Simulated scan of single mutants.
Amino acid sequence: MSSDGEYLVVRAVKSRQGEDVDVFAFFLYGSDLTRIAEISRITRDDGELKGFQRKEIRTHVNSIVEFLDSGPVLFPNAMILALSPEVEFKNARGSRPEGMTDVADTGTLSIPIRPEGQRAAWIVDGQQRSLALARAKNNKTPVPVVGFVSPDLETQREQFILVNKAKPLPTRLINELLPEVSALLPRDLAARKLPSELCNLLNRDPRSPFQKLVKRASDVGDEAGVVTDTALVEAIKQNLKPPLGALSQYRRGSSGEGLDADGMHRTLVMYWSVVRDTFPEAWGRPPTESRLMHSAGIRVMGALLDPIMLRADSSPTPEAEIRASLARIAPHCCWVDGTWEGLGWQWNEVQSTRQHISRLSDHLIRLDRDLARPAR
């Protein structure tokens, strides 16, 4: 197969959306999808996020292959592709019927056929279906496709998140992708973007105690950390809630005008660095060996950040106040051994359930409040 001058030509309908973005609708054989389109897997290269697609779900792909090979089948689910500006569209000639709603043009779309790694299209939605279509014996099923022209990865990620918003897309995958998208997002996704970005910063910053300790969706093999990004994101979300969230002071207005993300990041680094220093025997170990690194421990210590920072922010030496606060409760904590006094839980019985997180958070917050009171 030559990579020069070879094209897949299909009949298509062309319209425009957004800021003059060309959008095409067309059909092609399922076996042709992987001839023109790449699957952009999510990975990291020297800290830079690449791609956006999750890993292949083999059981899902196999079940689709079995369905496709079961006989004549109806398969109307549209694939969504991001197309390079190199695609060429030629309008068809002919008269337009009177009274026709003029929202699109018909014609032919030419898409370059190239080797893997150089293709002119990327699958935004439908990667599992595309893999199944490529492997099925019945590879002549006409598949509907919607493609939008997009030379930049950010737009592709944006569409991937929005298209998959109502589907069971892994939370961790969305968490890692959100900071890379600058487009206007639905309110629920926009609310998750800032905590996800702060989580990213904590994982990358050499000054952060979490550097390279956070598990991301792009991690492979031995690169995986010990703290789930979901737990850290959820903890930060609580710290951002007004009026008692310690990070809420760094944002003003309902839409976040005057946002001071640097101030939030500094606060998180300062607090969690003291947590690491206070519990060195529990820091950086797998959750099976340390409940501090467990998602429950991260959520609990994240909840404790708010009352401790309330005092620390009014102190002339905030870090010293944090150290004093954590030093007072340290003898009562059971992250790697022992039994939690007043709760009756062995250290490794703490789980990521709402009840356990809530009860242990309340226990430590009450303990912190009682020990912080001046002796009479």
Rank of each mutant, 00 (worst) to 15 (best):
L8S: 03
A12V: 04
A217P: 01
G302F: 02
L213W: 04
W340V: 15
R204W: 10
P170D: 05
L173T: 05
G245K: 02
W335H: 06
R251N: 07
L305S: 09
E88Q: 15
V21E: 10
P243T: 09
K193H: 01
T59K: 14
V9I: 15
V214W: 03
L232K: 01
I161M: 02
K215G: 08
W347G: 06
H332D: 09
T59F: 12
R216N: 09
N77M: 15
Q127E: 02
A25R: 12
L189Q: 02
I64S: 04
P179E: 00
N203H: 09
Q211P: 07
R359S: 13
E116Y: 12
L240A: 03
N203G: 08
F160R: 00
W335P: 06
P115H: 05
S31N: 10
R252I: 15
R369I: 11
S2F: 09
N348G: 10
A217Y: 09
G51A: 07
C334K: 12
P206L: 09
D105H: 14
P206C: 05
H363Y: 10
R285V: 11
D205W: 03
R129S: 03
L178P: 02
R252S: 14
A330M: 10
S182P: 04
L169K: 00
G221M: 04
D46L: 14
L364Y: 12
Y29K: 15
